[in-house]
Design a protein around this nucleic acid. Structure first.
Length: 295
DNA sequence: AATAAACTCAACCGCCAAGCC
DNA sequence: CGGCTTGGCGGTTGAGTTTAT
């Protein structure tokens, strides 16, 4: 088994995308829709592997993507969702309209994990650290004097003898493995560009919906997700009618704020439900909730 | 102003599950 | 049933940029 990395073909471009490549990819998807990534580059006249095209489209070129300026609300939501879901960036991204998993992952790694640490919270477990970590800017000052390594040396330092990356002193948190869900929605996906712009539903979001991932955080007596909502570019279905014809494009900041509020409210409901239990029970419920999103 | 350190984020890598044949 | 392809995900890298000294 096994297969060669998809970018191993000789002659394929790698690295940063040029405006011309972006245009070619965008125009092709406008004309033919997403999907068939493997054959797309050739048809679009791109010397890129399909994987690279998909990544570029999903993380950068998609018309519904918001860039930068993560709001305090979004910031807070990411932290809370991460405490519930762990590093399941695609699930978290599915609840933040216009945000990509890559962007959230980067934002987490560069901002939020530091922020939490500085607040005395372990970013991977969301539990209180014994003592708050010294402020980042202080560390930055201090490191200058004690650390003469350049960046490459630092990278090497974090690798073991076999070249594998070794995370220093960072306990691995084992979370339930995300379950990949069958993609009947993906199959139903309308591949036209119109669809992708009006539904603004990414493949991830579609999967998330099926995984419960796009759903609201409501429970029935069996701790199962009750309601899915669908609005503002992510998969949210109002009520139990997951009518995709009701898809909406984010039209205003107000709409967006309301969606965030809804998400937040739903999330709080989920958390409040578990707040009445002991920690262990809490964890079990959160785990089962996380699982319920994925099954 | 020059230099080094730190930071950011787009892109790549490797793995895995689903689907197809 | 098993091998192969495809799409998707999370982790990691490193070039470019910003900040501190």
């Amino acid at each position: 088994m096994g297969r060669a990395p998809c970018c191993s073909k000789v002659g394929l471009h790698r690295g940063p995308w040029t405006p011309r490549e972006d245009t070619l990819l965008t125009k092709y998807i406008e004309a033919h829709g997403e999907g068939h990534w493997r054959s797309m580059p050739k048809k679009a006249g791109l010397l890129r592997c399909g994987k690279s095209c998909r990544l570029r489209w999903m993380n950068y070129l998609r018309p519904d993507i918001k860039r930068g300026n993560i709001t305090p609300d979004e910031d807070d939501l990411i932290v809370r969702l991460h405490s519930l879901l762990g590093n399941r960036w695609s699930l978290i991204a599915g609840r933040l309209p216009g945000r990509t998993d890559n962007e959230i992952k980067n934002y987490w790694n560069t901002h939020l994990s530091k922020k939490l640490r500085s607040q005395g919270t372990d970013p991977s477990t969301h539990k209180k650290l014994s003592e708050p970590v010294v402020k980042e800017n202080k560390r930055r000052k201090n490191q200058k004097t004690k650390n003469n390594m350049n960046k490459k040396e630092m990278v090497v330092k974090n690798k073991n003898k076999t070249g594998q990356h070794v995370e220093p002193l960072k306990p691995k948190v084992h979370l339930p493995k995300p379950t990949r869900v069958t993609s009947f929605l993906s199959l139903q996906r309308n591949d036209s560009f119109t669809s992708s712009t009006t539904t603004t539903t990414t493949t991830t979001s579609s999967q998330d919906l099926k995984a419960g991932g796009g759903g609201a955080f409501g429970f029935n007596e069996n701790d199962q997700v009750l309601v899915n909502t669908r609005a503002n570019g992510v998969v949210f279905c109002v009520g139990d009618d997951q009518d995709q014809d009701q898809d909406q494009v984010p039209n205003s900041a107000d709409d967006h704020d309301h969606t965030l509020e809804n998400i937040y409210e739903e999330y709080l409901q989920a958390l409040l439900k578990t707040d009445h239990h002991h920690d262990h029970q809490n964890q079990l419920e959160l785990d089962s909730f996380a699982e319920s999103l994925l099954i």
